[in-house]
Design a protein around this nucleic acid. Structure first.
Lengths: 149, 149
DNA sequence: CATTTACGTTGACAAGTGTAAACGTAAGTT
DNA sequence: AACTTACGTTTACACTTGTCAACGTAAATG
């Protein structure tokens, strides 16, 4: 398949990372029991995912006797920023604002998150353009003439 | 692979949809030339993607003579909302706010988008909790006791 | 009408993913 | 020491995705 984009990890692998990010590091035993508390994945499956994450360098291992202790090589915040940016990079620029608005309306945000957003937005609005152009087609045929834009 | 989650379409397929959403519908010829104006995909590749999108019911076809006219079966906004929600559903709840904040800081938003967000946030802050709990581990062992949370 | 063109259909194939069974062996247990 | 357990390693396999080439035939063109 020749892996075109910079995929960090698959969705299943992501779930494994979540527990390791949250614990700060763990043995396969811990990962397995924590994951199994929320899913039906077999031990084998989780071991495979751990192995693949090590292959992808998302986890580093420290040998403790003959067991391994797995620890993340990226922070959760960095990984989250990356997957979210990668996704947004492929969305129509004109419509990103609307998508975020929808997201904001559906999420429960903390008071502090909201305050920071308000702060940021009040700065951004000072220089915000009236409209954002669609970038779904090539330049010479952009969406000013198109139906859905 | 037994398709666990509700994946709408692959990244490549998404790019094809973008042109069809933007044009409102198109023949394979149009799709091919519009896509090729921005990528190096072969005609064959694009035809395969169109076919798979039809199989997945993301596109419907109307026969015009022996050619097909492809039109989207979902709106771009709906598809965007779905992929974004699906992604956020797997991110640590505690950190979603921070991710959106980062996103907002990096995007160029229109004045109107910003105003709507400000409006929404000023409503939400009235009932916003002080903090959001991490949901990366199972309940009985949640992150109040964990390092990274 | 013969030829070229256009476009849908088939077939292909390697890499990634979801999901797991089986195996080997160091360690702990009896 | 024999037995059981735990945990890493190997092997497996079907489905998805990225990428195309080749084929067949209706249509357009000369």
């Amino acid at each position: 398949m020749k892996k075109n984009d910079t995929t960090l990890m698959s969705p299943s692998e992501w779930e494994v990372m979540r527990v390791i990010w949250t614990t700060g590091g763990a043995s396969s035993k811990e990962v397995i029991s924590l994951i199994q508390a929320k899913s039906t994945w077999s031990e084998s499956t989780i071991k495979t995912l751990l192995r693949r994450l090590v292959e992808k360098k998302m986890l580093s291992t420290i040998k403790e006797g003959r067991r391994f202790f797995y620890r993340p090589t990226i922070t959760e915040a960095a990984a989250m920023d990356k997957v979210v940016s990668d996704l947004f990079d492929h969305l129509c620029s004109m419509k990103k604002g609307g998508v975020i608005l929808k997201l904001l309306s559906e999420l429960t945000l903390s008071r502090s998150d909201i305050e920071q957003m308000q702060q940021l937005l009040s700065q951004k609005i000072k220089t915000a353009p009236v409209a954002i152009a669609c970038d779904c087609l090539s330049n010479d045929r952009n969406c000013d003439q198109k139906k859905s834009c």
